[in-house]
């Protein structure tokens, strides 16, 4: 009888192994598929031309993607700049200062915020943020902007990643044992000194992980960004310029412009480049995390 049970046991183990490897293999297949599909355009243009040239003229067979890469980096970078301090301080407030009733009602509120479809964020961006940039922020700096800009996209994106980063950062603070707070407070430290000198240090790896998770999503966010970014294929020189991030390029043109030779292959390559940017970002943050853990251990 025991034989039957152990066979089942082994079978269950193997089944789970297959499921797991299937999930992992999808990533490999996806990358391979994109690579194969982008061979034609890579044959016509050198990788350097594609990565470091900003001349995007599909009709002339020129597929320089620098403007789109720059657009992606601008939008994500600026939204990180906006979102990181705000979400960090909100998380600190909610986990360390807020009374428990406020903590309790803030949770479902943020769950809702995280669940709003990105197209709704896009509409909100067009209705509120774009006019704000056009009528208030750009005139303040004495420049003209249509409002459809890197800045508008970054603000919308920042609001979209807030709930993810805040929630995880709160979890990180909660995982710090209360006794560590007690230890610092009992030495006569104020609450702020305790947070600044002890808790932040302890939480740093977790906070970085929270932000990485948030911005891995931000890199690929398509809908809301393409609705407010302006989508002009030129390298932006200021946050008030329009930008054209990679996901927007792919979503706007796939299925539309495929009569132009090599266009679909170029879009596949754009997807591959996006893929690689996200992977590089993840590897870099992993490296930083391991350095911090090494120092803290």
């Amino acid at each position: 009888m025991a034989g039957k049970r152990s066979i089942r046991d082994a079978r269950a183990g193997r089944l789970m192994f297959f499921m797991t490897s299937a999930c992992a293999l999808i990533v490999v297949f996806m990358a391979a598929g994109l690579l194969i599909k982008s061979f034609p355009v890579l044959r016509a243009n050198s990788p350097a031309q594609i990565l470091f040239s900003d001349s995007w003229s599909p009709l002339k067979g020129e597929f320089g993607m620098l403007a789109f890469i720059a657009g992606t980096v601008w939008v994500t970078g600026l939204s990180a700049l906006i979102a990181m301090p705000v979400s960090l301080f909100s998380a600190i407030y909610l986990s360390e200062y807020a009374p428990s009733w406020l903590r309790k009602i803030s949770r479902p509120f943020m769950d809702v915020l995280a669940g709003i479809p990105s197209v709704v964020f896009g509409v909100w961006g067009i209705l509120i943020i774009v006019p704000l940039v056009r009528d208030c922020i750009a005139p303040f700096f004495g420049v003209y902007s249509s409002g459809y800009s890197i800045l508008a996209a970054s603000i919308v994106l920042a609001v979209m990643v807030f709930p993810i980063i805040i929630q995880i950062t709160i979890e990180v603070f909660h995982s710090i044992p209360g006794e560590l707070r007690d230890a610092s407070l009992s030495l006569g430290a104020t609450k702020w000194q305790t947070i600044k000198l002890v808790l932040l240090r302890k939480a740093l790896p977790g906070i970085i992980a929270a932000n990485v998770l948030g911005f891995s999503r931000a890199f690929g966010e398509t809908m809301a960004v393409l609705m407010v970014a302006g989508n002009i294929p030129a390298i932006p020189h200021s946050p008030l310029d329009a930008g054209y991030p990679l996901p927007a390029l792919i979503a706007n043109n796939y299925g539309e412009m495929l009569s132009i030779p090599l266009y679909d292959s170029a879009l596949m390559l754009a997807a591959l480049v996006l893929f690689l940017i996200v992977i590089m970002f993840n590897l870099l943050s992993r490296y930083i995390l391991s350095r911090i853990n090494l120092r803290a251990a």
């Binding site: 044992p177 006794e179 610092s184 006569g188 000194q193 000198l197 002890v198």
Partner: peptide, 27 residues
């Protein structure tokens, strides 16, 4: 500050041995 606290398990601050001792005087 008048009272030192020793808890059930030791909770060293996330810093060096030196900085753990210097933490109180510094703040």
């Amino acid at each position: 500050k008048k009272m030192g606290l020793l808890s059930q398990r030791p909770y060293p601050l996330p810093m060096s041995i030196y900085d753990n001792i210097a933490f109180g005087p510094r703040i």
